[in-house]
């Protein structure tokens, strides 16, 4: 009898779970345990870290490298090409993944295997980030911490707005290049997440003004001449901390050398998670990008505040 009483607090904990959360697809997911988490999406992993739950992460996608401690944990693939077996091998109870994660059959297999799969909303806007933080908070039973993080984000956004609002005149023309093939300049329009930060930082996407039959939606190989015709004042590129990066390679991309940005070497390279992850750092990222674009000259490299390679 005494033993039974002794177990009461434990029972309370057990009763606190399952948490119920509505995920990005609108489906209500029951999370019976958040003890073993596979985190898919760099921005989700960094939020979990902010909640102090890095210990519980038993698997991560290739793009989750913040905090650096994650690099020692099993990699279960690229977020859109997940491997069901690699995930199940970690015996997870909860999969937290960005909404584009997949492929869908793998997610279905995981659900069948009893894993709670929560697709986290991932809209590339400040409001979207707040939603993301709150969904994760709900799924792991940390709503208070989530609200704390949202308030911090709001303070960052306020600081950003105080900067961008006072800026007068035509916004800077910025080209977002995603470096892939050295013989093609792969450029993204505003819909792409990384390019979205440019607008948030108070500049404009230069590719908008380039006319033609193949108007730029998402990312395309832009012909060298169109790169020049876009007349960017600055170029923003993501870099991958695990891969070599050089500004010279960007300057050598077709057309870049002939633009004002190329001539003045105005290139801002930004950690890929920082620029396109839309995590809780999005306010700081936009502010840093704003300062790099408007207050600095020459090539600038912006590392993630909690990751320096």
């Amino acid at each position: 009898m005494k033993g039974w009483l002794f177990a009461l607090p434990l029972l309370g904990l057990a009763l606190a779970q399952p948490f119920r959360v509505t995920d990005a697809t609108g489906r209500e997911v029951e999370v019976r345990s958040a003890e073993r988490i596979v985190s898919v999406g760099g921005s989700i992993s960094e939020i979990l870290d902010k909640f102090g739950l890095t210990e519980r992460i038993v698997g991560r996608d290739t793009g989750s490298y913040i905090p650096a401690a994650l690099l020692k944990k099993p990699d279960v693939g690229l977020f859109f090409r997940l491997n069901a077996e690699a995930i199940l091998a970690q015996r997870p109870t909860l999969l937290l993944a960005v909404s584009e994660a997949g492929p869908p059959p793998v997610l279905a297999q995981l659900r069948q295997a009893g894993v709670s799969v929560v697709l986290v909303p991932d809209e590339p806007t400040p409001e979207g980030v707040k939603k993301k933080i709150r969904t994760i908070g709900a799924a792991v039973g940390q709503p208070a911490r989530a609200e704390e993080l949202v308030r911090a984000l709001e303070r960052d956004l306020l600081a950003l707005r105080s900067k961008t609002r006072v800026r007068r005149g035509e916004p800077l023309r910025v080209l977002y290049i995603y470096p892939r093939d050295p013989r093609n300049t792969f450029v993204c329009g505003e819909e792409a997440s990384g390019a979205g930060l440019i607008t948030l930082a108070g500049a404009q996407n230069a590719v908008r003004s380039v006319q033609g039959a193949g108007a730029v939606r998402g990312c395309v190989n832009l012909t060298a001449e169109a790169v020049v015709a876009a007349r960017p004042d600055a170029i923003v590129v993501p870099f991958f901390p695990d891969q070599p990066f050089s500004f010279e390679n960007i300057l050598r991309l077709p057309g870049v050398a002939e633009t004002p940005a190329g001539r003045n070497r105005r290139i801002v390279a930004m950690d890929v998670t920082y620029i396109s992850g839309y995590g809780y750092t999005v306010g700081r990222a936009a502010l840093e990008l704003h300062q790099a674009l408007y207050e600095k000259t020459g090539p600038v490299r912006l590392n993630h505040p909690s990751f320096s390679p």
Partner: peptide, 9 residues
């Protein structure tokens, strides 16, 4: 190739 779907190629 470079004009059909300009500015994309």
């Amino acid at each position: 190739a470079r004009t059909l779907f300009a500015p994309a190629e």
